[in-house]
């Protein structure tokens, strides 16, 4: 059949135009903006003045941005290790044929259905509350003194713990779908050959989940880099150093904050570009380190 090129272009045009306008254009504009001094995000380009790499130097020397990057690293590494390891562990347990697995799946996934605002508020105002919080009730019942879970030293870790609780279910489902895709014959053969459950996990499950693990690491990196809501809810009145993350820093830089009238959309764009580069770098490194399995099943 002869291809009708005009028709193909016509059908593709709406999607391509939307993609160019709503995705490619903002990305290009943000990258260009990061090299200019731009006060207002929506201001005319006539008011832009070329700034070279000054925006990048500005954020790299800003204590707020440095703190936000440290917090991002803590969320990405510590939160990532706990979330991905725990969700994989739970996924393995729930696919091992235990009873009530449907209930456990639903229960562990439940925090993903609840609004993140409600979830974070529950942690901040109830679980971590000094006077009547769940954790301090447990602590005092065990005979210890109450703990200030949201002190400046502990707040970041408290936020990460709460975020892990809210994230595990999502990654668990991804791992479950991956594990369920592995043919059961492999496990049956391994069992007949006398392989223990742990050996089966390390020799069969884990190698065959490489592709899924790569995906979850990329997803987690994107989640950590775009972490915003939890940081805002753990610092309800104004941004705090203990919980600031790059996107919150970006937001405050572009739009100002309580009593802060200075705005710098150029520096904000530079933060956005840096975050994007981090995500791309992590993706490339993950691709290199975790080469996709050449096993066919």
């Amino acid at each position: 059949m002869k291809k009708n090129r005009t028709l193909i272009f016509l059908f593709m045009a709406p999607t391509v135009i939307c993609l160019l306008l709503m995705y490619v254009y903002p990305v290009i504009r943000t990258v260009i903006m990061s090299f200019f001094h731009v006060e207002s995000l929506t201001g005319s380009t006539k008011d832009w003045s070329f700034n070279g790499l000054a925006n990048y130097f500005k954020i790299m020397h800003n204590a707020g941005f440095i703190t936000s990057m440290k917090n991002f690293l803590a969320i990405w590494i510590v939160g990532g290790v706990f979330t991905l390891a725990l969700s994989l562990l739970i996924a393995v347990i729930l696919t091992s044929g235990i009873r009530f697995q449907g209930f456990f799946r639903a229960a562990i996934y439940l925090p993903n259905i609840v609004s993140a605002v409600a979830l974070a508020t529950m942690w901040v105002q109830y679980i971590f509350n000094f006077d009547y919080g769940l954790l301090n009730q447990l602590v005092t019942a065990l005979g210890f003194e109450k703990v200030r879970w949201l002190s400046t030293d502990a707040k970041l870790w408290a936020m990460i713990a709460a975020f892990i609780y809210g994230s595990i279910g999502y990654y668990m489902l991804i791992y479950i779908s991956g594990i369920e895709g592995i043919p059961t014959d492999l496990y049956e053969a391994a069992t007949i050959d006398g392989a223990s459950k742990s050996k089966q996990f390390f020799r069969i499950t884990l190698p065959l989940l490489k592709g899924i693990i790569k995906t979850t690491i990329t997803f987690w990196t994107i989640n950590a880099a775009t972490f915003y809501l939890w940081s805002k809810l753990f610092s309800p009145v104004q941004t705090e150093g203990s919980t600031i993350v790059p996107v919150v820093y970006l937001y405050d830089t572009v739009f100002g904050g309580k009593g802060v009238v200075e705005r710098d959309a150029g520096a904000g764009a530079a933060v956005g570009v840096v975050l994007t580069l981090i995500i791309i770098a992590v993706y490339i490194v993950t691709e290199k380190l975790l080469k996709s399995s050449d096993l066919e099943y």
Binding site: H61, N62, A63, G64, T67, S68, R148, S151, T152, Q238, T239, E240, G241, S242, I244, G257, K258, G259, V260, E262
Partner: peptide, 23 residues
């Protein structure tokens, strides 16, 4: 509202230190 301090580049850290003062 803290306007002479909240334009400092290390304002976020300063704020945490003010909390630590009360801690």
């Amino acid at each position: 509202w803290c306007a002479e301090l909240n334009t400092h580049p290390a304002w976020q850290t300063m704020k945490d230190m003010f909390v630590e003062l009360f801690e």
